[in-house]
Design a protein around this nucleic acid. Structure first.
Length: 271
DNA sequence: ACGAAGCCCTGCAAGC
DNA sequence: TGCTTGCAGGGCTTCG
C-alpha cells in the first residue's frame, strides 16, 4: 500500500536511472487500470526524454518536452527498474523501455492505479488542481488546519485523509499520527483548538518524515529490490494492532470503522 | 457545500 | 481439498 513515503521513495529510487534518458518503446499488456492507458502513450512517449521527475501528493509526474506522464500507484502498485532479460509477471501491466536497455516496469495487482499521458499544463489538470498542501511543506501548519476546519462536523480522521485538505495522509499514517497526537479520531474537526492542531500537524510531519527516512534505507538497491518497501511494520504503534495493548498505557486498543476505513485508537490516551 | 456511501479490482484469510 | 464469502484499500464519483 504505497502512501506518500513509499511514493517519494520510489521517486528517489528511479530518478538516477531514468532522468535525462530517452524512451524508445512502451509496452502495454493490460490497459485497464483506474482509467484506461491510452495507445497515445505507445505512439508519443518513445523519442521523448525524461526531463524531471516530480511528486505531488501520491502522484508521480514524469516530465517530457511533449507532455507529462502522471502515475498513481493506487494501493498495490509499484515501479521497478529491470531489463529485458527479466520476464514480466502476471501483473506487470506496462513497460517503459529506455535507450540502452533499462526498463521501468509498472506492476499493479489490484489495478487501482493509473498511468495518464497529459498534454495540457499539468498544474491545471483536474486530478491535481484542487489538492491541498504538501504535509511536509511550510504551508501545512496549525493555522492552516485550524482555519479550514472551522464549522466542519466531520470526524478529524477522515478530515485529514481528504486530499483536498492535505495530500498524502493515508489510513495507516492517519491512525499513527492521531495516536501520537493523543487525539480521538472521532472528534469533530471543527472542535479542535489551534494548539491541538499544532500538535497534530507536527505529528503528521514526524510520522511521514520518519517513514521517508526508513524508506530511504532500502533505496540503495532499488534496481534489484523485490518491490516490497521495508514497510517498517515494527514502527507502527496502532495500525493493525486492534485489541492489542496500547504501547503508552497498556490498555486494550479499540478498533472501529470510520468513513469505511479501519481505525485503531486508545480510548484512554486519545481524547 | 458538505459528508457519507458506492465503486473499481485482486489477493488473502476464514468458513464450510 | 476446493469452493464461497468477506475484507482491505485510494480516491474519484454519485447521492442525499
Amino acid at each position: 500500500m504505497p502512501e506518500l513515503p513509499e511514493v517519494e521513495t520510489t521517486r528517489r529510487g528511479i530518478l538516477p536511472h531514468i532522468l535525462n534518458r530517452q524512451v524508445i518503446q512502451v509496452i502495454i499488456r493490460q490497459p485497464s487500470l483506474r482509467w484506461p492507458v491510452t495507445p497515445e502513450l505507445i505512439d508519443e512517449l518513445p523519442g521523448q526524454t525524461i526531463s524531471a521527475i516530480k511528486r505531488r501528493g501520491k502522484y508521480l509526474l514524469l516530465d517530457t518536452k511533449l507532455a507529462t506522464l502522471l502515475i498513481h500507484l493506487g494501493m498495490s502498485g509499484s515501479l521497478r527498474l529491470t531489463n529485458s532479460e527479466t520476464p514480466p509477471g502476471k501483473h506487470d501491466h506496462v513497460d517503459i523501455v529506455f535507450e540502452g536497455g533499462g526498463i521501468l516496469r509498472y506492476c499493479d495487482p489490484r489495478r487501482f492505479g493509473c498511468m495518464l499521458w497529459i498534454k495540457t499544463p499539468i498544474e491545471n489538470h483536474l486530478l491535481l488542481h484542487s489538492l491541498g498542501p504538501e504535509p511536509l511543506s511550510e504551508d501545512f501548519d496549525a493555522e492552516y488546519l485550524h482555519r479550514i476546519s472551522r464549522n466542519r462536523k466531520q470526524a478529524v480522521k477522515p478530515f485529514i485523509m481528504n486530499s483536498g485538505n492535505v495530500v498524502g495522509v493515508g489510513n495507516i499514517y492517519a491512525n499513527e499520527a492521531l495516536f501520537q497526537a493523543g487525539i480521538n479520531p472521532k472528534r469533530a474537526a471543527g472542535n479542535l483548538s489551534l494548539a491541538r492542531y499544532g500538535v497534530l500537524a507536527d505529528c503528521i510531519k514526524q510520522v511521514l518524515q520518519n517513514a521517508v527516512d526508513v524508506g530511504g534505507t532500502s533505496l540503495r538497491d532499488f534496481t534489484n529490490s523485490s518491490g516490497e518497501p521495508g514497510y517498517f511494520k515494527q514502527l507502527l504503534q496502532v495500525y493493525g494492532r486492534g485489541c492489542l495493548d496500547c504501547l503508552k498505557c497498556g490498555r486494550l486498543l479499540k478498533e472501529i470503522r470510520l468513513g469505511q476505513r479501519s481505525t485503531v485508537y486508545c480510548t484512554h490516551c486519545q481524547k
